[in-house]
Nucleic acid binder design. Sequence first.
DNA 1: ACCTGAACACCGTTCAAGT
DNA 2: ACCTGAACACCGTTCAAGT
Lengths: 187, 187
Amino acid sequence: MPAPSRTSLEAIVAAGTALLEEAGPDGLTMQAVATRVGVRAPSLYKRVAGRDALVRLVAEAAVRDLTEVLEAATPPDADPAAALVDLAHALRRFAHARPAAFRLIFWSGAEATRPSPELNARAVAPVLRVCAALAGEDRALEAARTVTAWAAGFVGMELADAFRSGGDVDEAFEFGARRLAGAIAAG
Amino acid sequence: MPAPSRTSLEAIVAAGTALLEEAGPDGLTMQAVATRVGVRAPSLYKRVAGRDALVRLVAEAAVRDLTEVLEAATPPDADPAAALVDLAHALRRFAHARPAAFRLIFWSGAEATRPSPELNARAVAPVLRVCAALAGEDRALEAARTVTAWAAGFVGMELADAFRSGGDVDEAFEFGARRLAGAIAAG
DNA sequence: ACCTGAACACCGTTCAAGT
DNA sequence: ACCTGAACACCGTTCAAGT
C-alpha cells in the first residue's frame, strides 16, 4: 500500500539552506531539517544519502545562485576594468546576504561536503572572461586566480571579523579592486 | 588528600594541535584529546572550559607559530618588494605544513573558537610594516589588507582544491605576488 | 512506497563519589 | 586537588515494523 510523499528533495535542500544561515553549519542537523519539512529524521534518508550529501547539495545550490549573481553583474559590452570592480562588489554583496553559504562555497574544509569543481568553475567563468579581456588570453587564468583569491579572501576575512584595526573596510575593498584591476591589466 | 596532576594545559593543547591535523576539526574531540594525554574526558574540564575554548587555544597557539614564521621572513634591511614576496611564500609554506591550523586561523566561522584579534594583528604586523615601506604610511593599512586577503585567499582556495582547471599553481602564486607588490607600490 | 519508533554508537558536559 | 564512572541531552544512522 503506497504511502504518499510528505516532502521532497527540493524542500529538504531549501530547509537546509535556511537553517544554514539561521543556525550556522552546526545548526544544520538532520533532525532540524526533518522538523522543518514536517517529517522524522530517518525519512530524510529516502532522498539524501546522509548529512554530508545534504550539506553538499546546499552548497551546490548556493554556487548556482552565486553563478547567476556574477553573470548578471557582467553585461557583455561592459568596460573590462569596470566589470572587474562590479564583479568584486557582486561577490561581496552575495557574501553579506548569505555569509554561511559563502563560507561553505569557498572555505568548506571537508572534502565530503565540497561543491563539485565543475560548478565552481562555472561560477567563476565571468571572472575568467573579464580577466582575458584585461590581461590577455595567456594570462587570463593566473589573473582570474589572483582576483578571485583576493576577493574571496577579503570577504572571508571580513566575515571572520578580521578587520578590526580600524580603517574603512569599504574603502579598503575599493582600493583593492582598483589596484588589482590595474595590476592585472599592466603588461 | 591531594591527587597528583596527570596532565597539563600545555599537553592538552599539544594533543589538540596534533589531532587537528591528523583527524581534522571533527576529529578534535574531547575524548580523543583525553585519550591522547592519558586521562578521561571529564578531567579536561579542570583545565579547559570546554571544547570551544580548547579549539580557540589551539588556534591561538597556531597564530603564535605563524607570527614567528612571518617575522623570520622579514629581516629589517630587506628590499620591501622582495620582502612582500617572501612573506607570501612563508605564509604559503605554513599553510602547506599545517593546513588545518591555517584554516582555523583564517576561516574559522565560529565566533567562539576564533583566535583573539590582538593575536591576529601581531601576526600580520610584518605585512603592515612592509606595506608601509611600499605604499606609504597613509595607504599601509589598505595595502596590507589587500595583500593579506589575496595571500590567505589564494592558499585557502588551494587547500580547498579550488584550482583544478589546470595551469601551474606555483606560477599563479608567483604571478599574484609580483603583481600585487607592483600594484601596492604604484602611486 | 514512504514513514516511523526504537536502537546503536557516538558526541559534549555535569556531578557525585572516590583517592 | 585531581580523577573517574555514571548519567543526560544531543547527534547521525540503521532497520524492522507499520500503513
